[in-house]
């Protein structure tokens, strides 16, 4: 079942067509991976799907939601969409624990002042930080973490949100880039478990082994356009895909 669909999406920056008439859909409880050369519009796709940027034209439909293309940035959360950032974006001068708690707490001003679920949220944050091996770092400022730990903290935030039931569509923008093998395994396992739990996953990744291991469906982008899509092995053996992407 397609839970998220985009149709004829266009987004340009000055003269650059970052997304150029893209139409694809994402299935529930599946990992849909997106590959494409540098600058082909993958991050822009994530930015647009998470409503951090509004596309110029086209439609983004989410099962019984409004057209996300026209929504304000903070609304995507309320349709269950969450994301990680290719260039890690943490709340640098806040503790590791606060970086997770902030995604769990009340969204409404008054409820946030008189928060009633402190202990419950702490438990959820603890679980997410333990899964990513960061619980022992909880009082460190995020800015003091190593690169790999920073990437893991982004994953921990997503994990806490999904465990709390507030998120069911997760956009991972190159979550494995620059990670040590052990950490790669941690993140890969988390993605598998999220899929098992019925979450919809959009994964942007350059490593073909990981793509083969994790993906149910593969989308290849080139210059903002859809180049190919389908079953991963099949797509990866297509000649035009190899030329555009793997060949370079």
């Amino acid at each position: 079942m397609a839970i998220l669909k985009i149709k004829n999406l266009q987004k340009h920056f000055g003269g650059v067509m970052a997304i150029d008439g893209l139409s694809v859909s994402f299935e529930k409880a599946r990992v849909t991976s997106v590959i494409g050369p540098n600058g082909s519009g993958k991050t822009t796709l994530v930015n647009v799907l998470s409503a951090m940027l509004n596309a110029d034209s086209g439609i983004i439909t989410i099962s019984n939601g409004p057209d996300l293309r026209k929504c304000a940035p903070f609304t995507a959360h309320f349709y269950g969409i969450t994301r990680t950032f290719q260039e890690v974006r943490l709340f640098e001068q806040m503790s590791v624990l606060d970086n997770v708690l902030i995604v769990l707490t009340e969204r409404n001003v008054l409820s946030a002042i008189f928060e009633k679920h402190g202990a419950y949220h702490l438990q959820q944050a603890k679980t997410a930080l333990e899964t990513t091996g960061l619980w022992s770092k909880r009082i460190e400022l995020a800015t003091n973490l190593s690169y790999g730990q920073r990437k893991l903290l982004e994953v921990a935030r997503v994990l806490a949100l999904t465990a709390s039931g507030k998120s069911n569509i997760i956009l991972f923008d190159e979550p494995f880039a620059g990670l040590f093998p052990q950490m790669v395994k941690t993140v890969a396992d988390i993605i598998k478990e999220l899929r098992m739990a019925g979450k919809t996953i959009v994964l942007i990744e350059h490593n073909m082994d990981l793509i083969r291991e994790l993906s149910d469906h593969l989308i290849v982008m080139d210059a903002g356009k859809l180049l190919a899509q389908g079953e991963p092995e099949e797509v990866l053996s297509r000649k035009d895909v190899i030329e555009a992407y793997l060949g370079e």
Partner: peptide, 8 residues
């Protein structure tokens, strides 16, 4: 990023 996590 704060907005991306659902805060107006």
């Amino acid at each position: 990023a704060t907005q991306a996590f659902g805060y107006n």
